[in-house]
């Protein structure tokens, strides 16, 4: 800043008219361009992003005995319940994958999407306290949610991996290898979908809380429209199959299982479809979010 000031003084000396165009570092105005998303500013605040992720992780299990072990307990119990309900009672097949692995893999990948969506969808309302007092790029908080959920996902993925190894020792055929390289892409697409949808909902929630009610059960119902508790192959010749196929989450879950077990109904074009869908949702989300973040304190 010092050097900027010095430069400016020089300029004033050189230019005869001192009233020449002044240089301002920041202009606060009512409107901004539709695509002026200030993403560079988000990069400038990356330290804060990292600190928020650390905060989420450190604070979540303070004063619990099991601590991060809770990340294991939730998927294990859910798997047990799914085993009983969907495998034993409803007799839904699992694509030839051992049911425990089938459900646990579905839950692990679904949890990542659902927690991204749930976490980001209340960004504005939950953080109104901070947002009302100080400015920083609002996108930092939903991004932090996505990243801390990635940490959680990694922990749950370790559980899945160790179970996989156990089963492969038992002689079940496992597909782990190069196909795992597709995993980062799947996670990016899932995170983008969760984030995009989440920030759209959080933007709408600032004025109309109706959407936060919707998201409460909507995410749960969405799980049943995604092949988490059943394989896509099970739906052949069902009249509502098209609905599940066009769900952009479907190829991602199927691809995740395909990468791990070599079983699943997935094609490159369907993943490309999910990817394109994600880009659109994310862009729309960013535009709406940026429009809302500027004045949401008035309506929240």
């Amino acid at each position: 800043m010092q050097s900027v000031l010095l430069e400016e003084e020089k300029k004033v000396e050189l230019i005869v008219e001192p009233e020449a165009e002044e240089k301002w570092d920041l202009v606060i105005e009512p409107k901004s361009g539709l695509f002026d998303l200030r993403l560079k500013e988000v990069w400038n605040y990356r330290d804060l992003l990292v600190l928020f992720v650390k905060r989420d992780f450190k604070a979540q299990y303070k004063q619990t005995i099991l601590g991060p072990l809770w990340h294991f307990i939730q998927p294990i119990f859910t798997t047990v319940v799914f085993l009983v309900v969907f495998s034993n009672i409803a007799n839904i097949p699992t694509d030839g994958i051992p049911p425990i692995l089938f459900y646990l893999s579905g839950i692990t990948i679904w949890n990542y999407f659902a927690s991204c969506l749930n976490g980001t969808s209340n960004t504005f309302v939950a953080n109104a306290g901070i947002f009302g007092k100080v400015y920083f790029p609002r996108m930092i908080l939903p991004l932090a949610t996505v990243l801390s959920n990635l940490v959680k996902f990694s922990i749950q993925f370790l559980l899945l991996l160790s179970l996989l190894i156990y089963f492969s020792i038992q002689g079940v055929s496992i597909n782990i290898g190069w196909s795992l390289l597709v995993l980062p892409l799947l996670l990016v697409v899932l995170a983008g979908l969760g984030l995009g949808l989440g920030i759209i909902i959080s933007s709408l929630t600032t004025k109309y809380r109706d959407f936060s009610v919707l998201i409460g059960f909507g995410v749960q119902l969405l799980m049943y429209a995604t092949p988490v508790v059943y394989p896509l192959s099970f739906l052949v010749e069902k009249s509502y199959r098209w609905f599940i196929v066009w769900n952009p989450l479907t190829p991602l879950v199927e691809a995740f299982r395909y990468a791990l077990f070599g079983q699943g109904t997935v094609s490159a074009s369907s993943i490309l479809y999910s990817f394109g869908f994600m880009l659109v949702i994310l862009l729309v989300g960013l535009i709406i979010f940026h429009k809302v973040e500027r004045s949401f304190m008035d309506t929240v």
Binding site: M1, W24, E29, K133, V134
Partner: peptide, 15 residues
Amino acid sequence: SRTTTPTSGSIKLKG
């Protein structure tokens, strides 16, 4: 402090 925006007009800041 940029926690909300004006309805019209502007503020210019240096530094």
